[in-house]
Design a protein around this nucleic acid. Structure first.
Length: 269
DNA sequence: CTCCAGGTTCTCG
DNA sequence: CGAGAACCTGGA
């Protein structure tokens, strides 16, 4: 990896752009006509494309996106550790270059509250409308800050298409101060999850997503409908049982395993 | 028409 | 504490 003032350079093997962006951990990515992708995070943006054997991240905020794409972590070692689990054989075929992001905490919390019982296409639309209407007034604006969102009413959220999640956001956004978000990061995983689950609109699945995709607590194992189907065994008949079993089985690498399975399952159908 | 999507909340036994 | 129903919305 190499960082200069124009951006970041790393090998294709380290960063598979489509895999990393399209596996449902972020919602503000935009495929461009020339084959590149634009990514928005908070009020920052970058553009990703391949040049020969390299993935190039062009941005005004190289330090931010080096952290965002978790470029200091060696993923080959993690994949190697997970390869001893036979049931992950298929999932690991799509693991190459798929990275787990360190996203903005507020944006991630809001986005995954919106994600509940929803589909990725529609989540993207809602988030984009939220940003364009309340984060800057134009397409691809910054994600609105907590302070900007404090003025929103449940009716505003309904107008964005949030549906029954509107009341969740109206109640929870005010709680998501920097102090609160910092305190979550200082907790152990189990305590952080328990604390997040106190928020309206945040249950075990959304809590695990926030902890994995914003705090990069990689012992998280979010269980959505896809993962639940993939891990369907007679004894594991509830999402929380699946969560408990596999987070213990994979330990510190549970989050990576989960993301590889999710990517494989969605491409398999 | 019904079913489903990166689930959570509310209610009831 | 566990099971079941209700829930916005848009695409298949």
């Amino acid at each position: 990896m190499e960082i200069n003032e124009r951006g970041i350079l790393c090998s294709r093997g380290e960063l598979d752009i489509a895999r990393t962006l399209c596996c449902g951990q972020l919602f503000r990515y935009f495929p461009e006509a020339d084959g590149s992708y634009t990514v928005m995070s908070g009020n920052k943006s970058c553009k990703l494309r391949y040049e020969g054997d390299f993935a190039v991240i062009e941005t005004d905020s190289p330090e931010y996106f080096a952290e965002y794409f978790d470029l200091s972590t060696d993923y080959s070692a993690i994949v190697k550790e997970l390869s001893r689990f036979d049931e992950l054989h298929n999932a690991l075929t799509v693991s190459g270059g798929l990275r787990i992001l360190r996203q903005d905490r507020f944006e991630t919390a809001v986005s995954f509250i919106i994600s509940a019982n929803n589909n990725i296409k529609r989540i993207q639309g809602i988030v984009e409308r939220l940003c364009s209407r309340f984060g800057g007034g134009a397409a691809r604006s910054a994600f609105p800050t907590r302070e900007q969102m404090l003025t929103l009413t449940p009716q505003d959220y309904r107008a964005l298409g949030c549906g029954f999640r509107s009341e969740y956001l109206y109640k929870t956004v005010p709680v998501l101060t920097n102090e609160y978000l910092d305190s979550i990061g200082n907790m152990a995983h189990d305590e952080a999850k328990k604390e997040l689950c106190k928020l309206c609109g945040v249950g075990p699945k959304v809590a695990e997503c926030i902890l994995l995709f914003a705090y990069k607590m990689t012992d998280s194992y979010p269980v959505d409908t896809w993962i639940f189907k993939a891990n369907a065994i007679a004894e594991l008949d509830t999402p929380e049982k699946v969560n408990k079993y596999y987070s213990e089985r994979y330990g510190k690498n549970a989050g990576y395993a989960q993301q590889y399975i999710f990517e494989y399952m969605r491409n398999a159908t």
